[in-house]
Amino acid sequence: MTMPFRGPAAVPLVLHVNGEDFHVFVEPRRTLLSVLREELGLTGAKLGCGHGQCGACTVILDGETAYACLTLAIDCEDREIRTIEGLMRGDSLHPVQEALIAHDGYQCGFCTPGQVMSAVSLLEHNPRPTDDEIREGMAGNVCRCGAYPNIIASVAAAAELMAAEGD
Protein backbone atom coordinates (compact mmCIF):
# COMPACT_ATOMS: atom_id res chain seq x y z
CA MET A 1 0.00 0.00 0.00
CA THR A 2 2.38 2.72 -1.07
CA MET A 3 0.71 6.10 -1.04
CA PRO A 4 1.02 8.81 -3.65
CA PHE A 5 3.18 11.26 -1.72
CA ARG A 6 3.50 14.74 -3.17
CA GLY A 7 6.53 16.94 -2.53
CA PRO A 8 8.71 17.81 -0.76
CA ALA A 9 9.34 20.06 -3.77
CA ALA A 10 6.60 22.48 -4.86
CA VAL A 11 3.33 20.93 -5.97
CA PRO A 12 0.32 22.45 -7.73
CA LEU A 13 -2.64 23.25 -5.50
CA VAL A 14 -6.03 24.82 -6.07
CA LEU A 15 -7.30 26.95 -3.19
CA HIS A 16 -10.85 28.27 -2.97
CA VAL A 17 -10.50 31.69 -1.42
CA ASN A 18 -13.37 34.11 -1.04
CA GLY A 19 -15.31 32.31 -3.75
CA GLU A 20 -12.51 32.25 -6.29
CA ASP A 21 -10.17 29.45 -7.34
CA PHE A 22 -6.47 30.16 -7.12
CA HIS A 23 -3.85 27.91 -8.67
CA VAL A 24 -0.58 27.99 -6.80
CA PHE A 25 2.60 26.01 -6.93
CA VAL A 26 4.02 25.61 -3.42
CA GLU A 27 5.93 23.24 -1.19
CA PRO A 28 3.84 21.07 1.16
CA ARG A 29 5.58 22.78 4.08
CA ARG A 30 3.96 26.12 3.28
CA THR A 31 1.33 27.33 5.70
CA LEU A 32 -1.96 28.70 4.51
CA LEU A 33 -0.96 32.07 5.94
CA SER A 34 2.25 32.20 3.96
CA VAL A 35 0.46 31.27 0.73
CA LEU A 36 -2.33 33.80 1.28
CA ARG A 37 0.12 36.59 1.99
CA GLU A 38 2.97 35.83 -0.38
CA GLU A 39 1.36 34.02 -3.32
CA LEU A 40 -2.10 35.58 -3.38
CA GLY A 41 -1.16 39.00 -2.03
CA LEU A 42 -3.89 38.79 0.58
CA THR A 43 -2.04 40.51 3.41
CA GLY A 44 -5.05 41.15 5.63
CA ALA A 45 -4.32 38.10 7.80
CA LYS A 46 -1.15 38.84 9.76
CA LEU A 47 1.75 36.82 11.08
CA GLY A 48 1.89 37.72 14.75
CA CYS A 49 3.48 34.68 16.32
CA GLY A 50 3.43 31.74 13.90
CA HIS A 51 2.42 29.37 16.66
CA GLY A 52 -1.30 29.83 17.19
CA GLN A 53 -0.72 32.03 20.21
CA CYS A 54 -2.08 35.40 19.06
CA GLY A 55 -4.89 35.03 16.52
CA ALA A 56 -3.75 37.71 14.06
CA CYS A 57 -3.88 35.12 11.25
CA THR A 58 -7.48 34.03 11.88
CA VAL A 59 -9.39 32.99 8.76
CA ILE A 60 -12.62 31.06 8.28
CA LEU A 61 -12.23 27.50 6.96
CA ASP A 62 -15.38 25.66 5.98
CA GLY A 63 -17.41 27.98 8.16
CA GLU A 64 -15.23 27.91 11.27
CA THR A 65 -12.32 30.01 12.42
CA ALA A 66 -8.79 28.64 12.29
CA TYR A 67 -5.26 29.90 12.68
CA ALA A 68 -3.80 30.12 9.19
CA CYS A 69 -0.28 30.03 10.65
CA LEU A 70 -0.77 26.48 11.94
CA THR A 71 -2.68 25.28 8.89
CA LEU A 72 -0.81 23.76 5.96
CA ALA A 73 -1.93 25.14 2.62
CA ILE A 74 -1.95 21.63 1.20
CA ASP A 75 -4.44 20.72 3.93
CA CYS A 76 -6.87 23.26 2.48
CA GLU A 77 -7.56 21.75 -0.91
CA ASP A 78 -11.30 21.34 -1.32
CA ARG A 79 -12.02 23.63 1.59
CA GLU A 80 -13.75 27.00 1.52
CA ILE A 81 -11.35 29.67 2.73
CA ARG A 82 -12.66 33.07 3.75
CA THR A 83 -10.36 35.96 4.56
CA ILE A 84 -10.93 39.56 5.57
CA GLU A 85 -10.56 40.58 1.92
CA GLY A 86 -13.75 38.71 1.05
CA LEU A 87 -15.90 40.39 3.64
CA MET A 88 -16.90 43.67 2.05
CA ARG A 89 -19.52 43.77 -0.66
CA GLY A 90 -18.18 46.41 -3.00
CA ASP A 91 -17.76 49.47 -0.83
CA SER A 92 -20.14 48.38 1.87
CA LEU A 93 -18.79 47.13 5.13
CA HIS A 94 -19.87 44.05 7.01
CA PRO A 95 -21.83 45.02 10.16
CA VAL A 96 -18.92 43.79 12.29
CA GLN A 97 -16.63 46.21 10.46
CA GLU A 98 -19.10 49.07 10.80
CA ALA A 99 -19.47 48.40 14.50
CA LEU A 100 -15.72 48.28 15.07
CA ILE A 101 -15.35 51.71 13.49
CA ALA A 102 -18.26 53.20 15.40
CA HIS A 103 -17.10 51.80 18.75
CA ASP A 104 -13.36 52.23 18.19
CA GLY A 105 -12.88 48.50 18.61
CA TYR A 106 -9.20 48.63 17.66
CA GLN A 107 -6.12 50.69 18.19
CA CYS A 108 -3.05 49.84 16.15
CA GLY A 109 -5.26 47.65 13.97
CA PHE A 110 -2.78 44.83 13.44
CA CYS A 111 -4.96 42.25 15.21
CA THR A 112 -8.15 43.68 13.71
CA PRO A 113 -8.52 41.45 10.63
CA GLY A 114 -8.29 38.43 12.91
CA GLN A 115 -10.72 39.96 15.39
CA VAL A 116 -13.14 40.70 12.56
CA MET A 117 -13.06 37.12 11.28
CA SER A 118 -13.62 35.73 14.78
CA ALA A 119 -16.53 38.09 15.35
CA VAL A 120 -18.09 37.31 11.97
CA SER A 121 -17.88 33.59 12.63
CA LEU A 122 -19.15 33.95 16.17
CA LEU A 123 -22.23 35.83 14.98
CA GLU A 124 -22.85 33.38 12.17
CA HIS A 125 -23.08 30.59 14.73
CA ASN A 126 -24.66 32.58 17.52
CA PRO A 127 -26.50 35.69 16.28
CA ARG A 128 -27.36 36.98 19.78
CA PRO A 129 -24.42 36.21 22.02
CA THR A 130 -24.35 37.17 25.68
CA ASP A 131 -21.44 39.15 27.08
CA ASP A 132 -19.84 35.92 28.32
CA GLU A 133 -20.34 34.24 24.96
CA ILE A 134 -18.67 37.18 23.24
CA ARG A 135 -15.69 36.92 25.59
CA GLU A 136 -15.41 33.17 25.02
CA GLY A 137 -15.88 33.54 21.30
CA MET A 138 -13.21 36.22 21.02
CA ALA A 139 -10.76 34.59 23.46
CA GLY A 140 -8.51 33.36 20.67
CA ASN A 141 -7.44 36.82 19.51
CA VAL A 142 -4.88 38.86 21.40
CA CYS A 143 -5.14 42.65 21.23
CA ARG A 144 -1.96 43.97 22.81
CA CYS A 145 -3.32 47.51 22.65
CA GLY A 146 -6.08 46.32 24.98
CA ALA A 147 -9.08 47.46 22.97
CA TYR A 148 -11.08 44.64 24.54
CA PRO A 149 -13.91 46.67 26.10
CA ASN A 150 -14.63 48.23 22.72
CA ILE A 151 -14.23 44.93 20.91
CA ILE A 152 -16.90 43.45 23.17
CA ALA A 153 -19.12 46.47 22.57
CA SER A 154 -18.52 46.24 18.81
CA VAL A 155 -19.51 42.58 18.61
CA ALA A 156 -22.63 43.26 20.64
CA ALA A 157 -23.50 46.22 18.42
CA ALA A 158 -22.86 44.18 15.27
CA ALA A 159 -25.29 41.56 16.54
CA GLU A 160 -27.90 44.31 16.90
CA LEU A 161 -27.15 45.65 13.43
CA MET A 162 -27.45 42.21 11.88
CA ALA A 163 -30.66 41.47 13.75
CA ALA A 164 -32.10 44.76 12.49
CA GLU A 165 -31.01 43.98 8.94
CA GLY A 166 -32.59 40.54 9.20
CA ASP A 167 -35.96 41.98 10.25
Binding site: L93, V96, I101
Partner: peptide
Protein backbone atom coordinates in the same frame (compact mmCIF):
# COMPACT_ATOMS: atom_id res chain seq x y z
CA UNK B 1 -14.54 57.58 14.77
CA UNK B 2 -11.13 57.22 13.18
CA UNK B 3 -10.65 58.75 9.79
CA UNK B 4 -8.75 55.65 8.68
CA UNK B 5 -11.25 53.21 10.14
CA UNK B 6 -12.15 51.50 6.89
CA UNK B 7 -8.52 50.71 6.14
CA UNK B 8 -8.07 49.26 9.60
CA UNK B 9 -11.12 46.98 9.57
CA UNK B 10 -10.84 45.82 5.99
CA UNK B 11 -7.31 44.47 5.98
CA UNK B 12 -6.27 47.18 3.54
CA UNK B 13 -4.09 49.05 6.00
CA UNK B 14 -0.51 48.29 4.99
CA UNK B 15 1.98 47.64 7.74
CA UNK B 16 5.73 47.22 7.28
CA UNK B 17 5.12 43.46 7.42
CA UNK B 18 2.85 43.80 4.39
Amino acid sequence: PRVDGVARVSGRALYTHD
